[in-house]
Write a protein that binds this DNA or RNA. Structure first.
Lengths: 204, 204
DNA sequence: TTGACTTATGACTATAAAGTCATTATAATA
DNA sequence: TATTATAATGACTTTATAGTCATAAGTCAA
């Protein structure tokens, strides 16, 4: 991708655009400086005139992918009056931004975790396990919908994934805040919190 | 870690236990076969008598980390009657399992995505960006709590992370199911779905 | 005890990819 | 145009680590 092709004026932006494109196409794990040089139409040494090292390239790609999102979102959200409207707007704007940068976010989101270190076939079995879990939850939800307890409006399988993500987020939050000591009471209250938000939402 | 130390009878389990321990301690990115051999107290070649390659080791570590979880959970859940009780039990059992295998899940959950490819300092700035976003959401939620619209019972910052995870999960779900073509109507309905579940929950 | 078979070893090879730097090309200036 | 300064090059060096294999140690039946 030369300067004319990308429409970028300077080499920094040109290399960055190539890096992003490569990452979107092939993911983080197969991203190499040789490929980047080749793809950007410059010599390998040239990259090092504009970026400190590979980490610097990756950091800039991620930065550029996320940077406009936050400012655009806050602009839109702050125009709204009520907390509910603000949250509604935030969700919409966020999904819109993801849609506009779909190839970027597809890689960033799907190139998840350790999965990156596994071969394709192992990744598939890993994802199947997760899916099996979501299916199990979806069956419970379907039963609840049939009984009229749960809303009929949403894809039960997706709801299963939603619940899994809430549980995972809870764990990550506690890990990050060094609440590593799990006692039974703590787990009970955390579980009740997740249950409450999933079943009833945050509304009073 | 020798056989006596791990309490495992055979080399396969001994090597596997060492691998898991190493991964728990240092993460996936710095896990090498040399370290494993050293840590397991066997020669490098010995590992290849019990495992096909590195991928095979990683796959087995992940498998062993997740395998009992699902069967244990289904057992407990199936004893419950109502869908609500089932979901409540599922969340509790899942958190309990994570707690029991905290070092394993800490690594698996925190060693997230592309972040693995970044240097420590870049990872921190990445996490700070995410946190900034969660703080922004938490401020909206706090306002809602003050106004009496939202429940007072939960940590607003955690709620922010919950919402972010719902949005991300929605995107991943659509990416996985190849719904890559985002049109405005689709985004609106997806946004409404997330809003509804976050505000009101899945209960009718 | 011996010889056949199984298991283990670790020095070695192969390879991929990051990062360097002497050389060359291009641009700016006098 | 000649001279200097700046930018670009890509062959080369370095490093890390996965995977191999000739050799050695251990086991066990006859």
């Amino acid at each position: 991708m030369t300067e004319e092709e990308t429409g970028k004026i300077n080499k920094f932006d040109c290399i960055l655009a190539s890096a992003r494109k490569l990452i979107e196409q092939e993911g983080f794990s197969s991203f190499t400086m040789d490929k980047l040089a080749n793809n950007a139409g410059v010599a390998k040494g040239t990259i090092y005139l504009y970026f400190k090292d590979k980490n610097d390239v990756l950091e800039n790609v991620l930065k550029s992918g996320f940077q406009t999102m936050f400012s655009r979102m806050t602009d839109k959200v702050e125009k709204k009056e009520t907390p509910e409207e603000k949250i509604k707007t935030l969700i919409y704007e966020n999904l819109l931004y993801i849609g506009e940068n779909k190839y970027f976010f597809k890689t960033v989101f799907l190139d998840e975790m350790h999965v990156v270190f596994l071969k394709k076939t192992s990744q598939e079995s890993y994802n199947l396990r997760r899916r099996k879990y979501a299916v199990f939850i979806s069956e419970i939800i379907i039963k609840g919908i049939d009984e009229g307890i749960f809303k009929n409006l949403l894809d039960p399988l997706k709801a299963g994934f939603y619940l899994i993500s809430l549980i995972k987020t809870n764990a990550i939050y506690n890990f990050r805040n060094n609440k590593v000591e799990f006692n039974e009471d703590l787990i009970k209250s955390e579980a009740a919190e997740i249950f409450d938000i999933f079943i009833d939402g945050i509304k009073n």
